[in-house]
């Protein structure tokens, strides 16, 4: 008796026509399909273009921009934006555009590093807990539960005096240490499902050792989810970083991040609004672009994920709200 699932929804990919495509087309075919799906999402495309521009602003513009972020213009204190100072100046005569670009460099690096570390930790812990089960699982999940109920802001803030004067990399590690848990859980539950999938069982009964199974079969199966989640984590890390730096618990001088730039500008903002709006605007644009890209990637890599049923015209859909530090 064939157990079949009559599909009401039409298959969302082309019914896998067995047969005649030449083998070469495949690898590039999948990539192309992903690109096509991604580019059909207008918000994702916008995000990508925006992010590229912001990267250029952070890393390329200082090369030719007239002012360095350490320079002070004694002829211009708290001047509104002009051709001379694109984003205006602050009370000491620093050029806000240069400062913002500099701050973005740090914020972007912190975000990307944190996203990477956090995804790595989540994958390792989640897959380990899910695959081995038993005590490994229970203790790891207990740690996850604990970390989830401790406000990460509070902990990092309390610890900030400890890394004052050391490198900002410590800060990255701390940020990552408090943002992998939800992803870790998702990885774990996916591992649990995959563990029961027959191709994993088949490998097990062939005699393939557990670590090899995890790296050969389990983690690659969730690669798309990890990529999407990693992207979203970058955004979350940038928000976390700027929030902590805003109170002086994050990046410390002489380093400059978007958070510190915004914090410096805020008190004078009621009278000199550009001091707040420009850096904050850049921050929001970065996070927004990343969120759009993450969303587009989800549509492109994981078209059957929740809610993304085959619908030809679509622009927006579920994003994860995971891992916001602030």
């Amino acid at each position: 008796m064939a157990v079949q699932t009559p599909s009401v929804q039409p298959p969302s990919q082309a019914p896998a026509a067995p047969g005649d495509q030449p083998a070469r087309r495949r690898a590039s075919g999948r990539l192309r399909l992903t690109a096509v799906r991604f580019s059909r999402n207008r918000m994702a495309l916008f995000g990508l273009v925006m992010l590229v521009l912001l990267f250029l602003m952070a890393y390329v513009s200082p090369l030719f921009y007239k002012w360095d972020y350490t320079e002070l213009d004694f002829t211009a204190f708290q001047k509104p934006p002009s051709g001379e100072h694109w984003f205006g100046t602050d009370q000491t005569g620093s050029d806000l555009f240069a400062l913002t670009a500099r701050g973005m460099q740090k914020s972007l690096v912190i975000g990307i590093l944190t996203g990477l570390i956090c995804t790595f930790v989540a994958a390792a812990v989640g897959a380990g807990a899910g695959y081995f089960g038993g005590w490994t699982d229970r203790s790891l999940m207990w740690v996850v539960d604990l970390l989830l109920v401790m406000p990460s802001f509070l902990i990092i803030a309390v610890l900030s005096p400890l890394f004052q004067g050391t490198t900002w990399l410590v800060f990255v590690v701390l940020l990552a240490a408090f943002s992998w848990m939800i992803t870790g859980r998702v990885v774990r539950s996916m591992t649990l499902t995959l563990k029961d999938r027959e191709f994993v069982k088949a490998a097990k009964y062939m005699g393939v050792p557990a670590p090899v199974i995890i790296f050969r079969h389990i983690l690659p199966s969730m690669a798309s989810m990890l990529i999407i989640d990693g992207t979203i984590q970058v955004g979350a890390a940038i928000i976390g970083e700027t929030s902590l730096s805003y109170f002086g618990f994050g990046v410390q001088s002489p380093d400059v991040s978007l958070g510190t730039v915004i914090a410096t500008g805020t008190p004078a903002a009621p009278s000199f609004p550009w001091l707040f709006y420009f850096p904050a605007g850049c921050l929001v644009l970065i996070c927004l672009s990343i969120a759009f890209i993450g969303d587009g990637l989800r549509d492109a890599l994981d078209p059957n994920s929740s809610g993304a049923k085959a619908r030809a015209p679509r622009t927006a859909k579920s994003t994860s709200t995971e891992g916001r530090t602030s």
């Binding site: 929030s243 915004i262 903002a269 996070c287 990343i290 622009t315 927006a316 602030s326």
Partner: peptide, 25 residues
Amino acid sequence: DRVTTLASFFVLAMPVFVIAVTFKL
């Protein structure tokens, strides 16, 4: 749906302090 989705994207892309200060301004 699109409007609410877009709005929530915006809100989630902003740290709290940005929202709070913006409201204040």
